[in-house]
């Protein structure tokens, strides 16, 4: 079954169809969540809560073609909530996975992203890691495209000014 059919079926109440759609996007969902909340456990929580909320609200998805936008919006909302709970409890320490495939640059980049204020970080994540265009990010976050552009610029500036990546390496894009 094509994605479009699965989306229609999911909207009609077919939970298996929704499950298939989510599984097909699991890598993207997890990575986006991980970039936002920085730990595997929290990222998995975000994915789980996103699935729950998706199931509860798929019936209200009016334009199936915006399924991905809709889904990522749910995930961002959940991640924000988890992140805010995190920041009220413990300071962030970047998680280095066991097989140490993370390079120094990658670890620095992860730490830098964690330092960037939420509003700017989410735009950077969606732009660089989710490959969304400015217009799409605007749709996900329900903010004007101009605001997305300015947050992107300011987010990059923050990375440059505060981040280890830019301090220790000279970056070009």
């Amino acid at each position: 079954m094509e994605d479009a059919d699965l989306i229609l079926a999911a909207r009609a109440g077919d939970q298996e169809a929704l499950s298939k759609l989510l599984i097909a996007r699991q890598t993207k969902l997890y990575k986006t969540a991980y970039l936002y909340v920085h730990t595997q456990a929290d990222a998995l929580d975000v994915v789980q809560e996103t699935s729950l909320r998706a199931l509860l609200s798929i019936g209200k998805l009016r334009q199936p073609q915006y399924f991905d936008t809709w889904l990522i919006r749910i995930l961002i909302n959940v991640a924000q909530k988890v992140y805010r709970q995190q920041t009220n409890t413990i300071p962030f320490v970047p998680e280095i996975t066991g097989d140490s495939t993370l390079t120094d640059l990658h670890a620095d980049l992860m730490s830098d992203l964690a330092m960037i204020p939420e509003n700017f970080r989410v735009v950077l994540i969606l732009f660089y890691f989710n490959d969304l265009e400015v217009e799409e990010i605007a749709r996900v976050l329900r903010i004007p495209a101009g605001t997305v552009r300015s947050r992107l610029t300011r987010g990059r500036k923050m990375l440059r000014e505060r981040g280890a990546v830019y301090r220790e390496y000279r970056l070009e894009r």
Binding site: Q15, S19, L29, V47, Q48, S51, A54, L55
Partner: peptide, 11 residues
């Protein structure tokens, strides 16, 4: 991640 998705659907 698959498990998390399934658990989310069940919940």
């Amino acid at each position: 991640v698959s498990q998390a998705i399934k658990l989310g659907i069940i919940a």
